[in-house]
Design a protein around this nucleic acid. Structure first.
Lengths: 113, 113
DNA sequence: TCCACCTGTAATATGAGACTTACATATGGG
DNA sequence: CCCATATGTAAGTCTCATATTACAGGTGGA
């Protein structure tokens, strides 16, 4: 979760981290993996709400979730932190915007005059 | 614009940078100071809209604006970038949340049982 | 069977942010 | 005097993220 980012990826990360609850979610997960219900209890928020925030963090690639079967047979979804390291400066932002231009040759049509 | 941040300050920065237009504003200002109307023209957006985004960036402490009188007597508001360097990791976030606790003794009432 | 856990989603408010349009002001030059 | 430039703000709309409530299903144990 670092290296060269496109502005889109950078924005996804910034928007994902830039919320009070999600900041606390990251802080909780920094201590180790937790399953959803337990995490909701710790944060004092409803489970559906937590789901939304986790989705957002997952789409940004900051956390990952895995459904597991506990010893007692109950299904539990554990989330854990994906190590990230984003350096935020004016230059970083310029790099991200530049990266958009020559973004992967995912079947991009080239024009010439 | 770095060092130890409270979660509030960190959130202000992240939320401020986390928008496509504001990313481009920062990129433009990275090349040097620009006055509002000129910047709006470069970005191809309306001036009132740019104002909103600039306010947001200014509140987060990422840019500063100064009203100046040009040689021809016209008032022009120049904005420039405030150098910032935010390192974003799980640890950084933990630090920010910890910093909230013992935030400046700005007349804080202490209780004891 | 009922209760206590867990996951997952749909339906629905609500509120903040983003954006537009319109207007007020001031300056200098043709 | 009118036009072009500039700043600044008020008012309204509209979209979307946020948040709540309510439901669906599954398991294990008393």
């Amino acid at each position: 979760m670092d290296g060269i980012l496109t502005s889109e990826e950078l924005l996804a990360i910034l928007a994902a981290v830039g919320h009070p609850l999600r900041l606390r979610v990251i802080a909780e997960l920094a201590a180790g993996r937790v399953h959803v219900s337990e995490l909701a209890r710790r944060l004092g928020i409803s489970r559906p709400l937590l789901y939304m925030h986790l989705e957002r963090l997952e789409k940004a690639g900051l956390v990952t979730g895995a459904l597991e079967l506990a010893a007692d047979g109950k299904a539990m979804k554990y989330f854990e932190l994906v190590p990230f390291d984003v350096h935020l400066t004016a230059d970083t932002i310029l790099d991200a915007l530049r990266a958009d231009g020559q973004e992967g040759p995912d079947d991009v049509q080239e024009f010439q005059s």
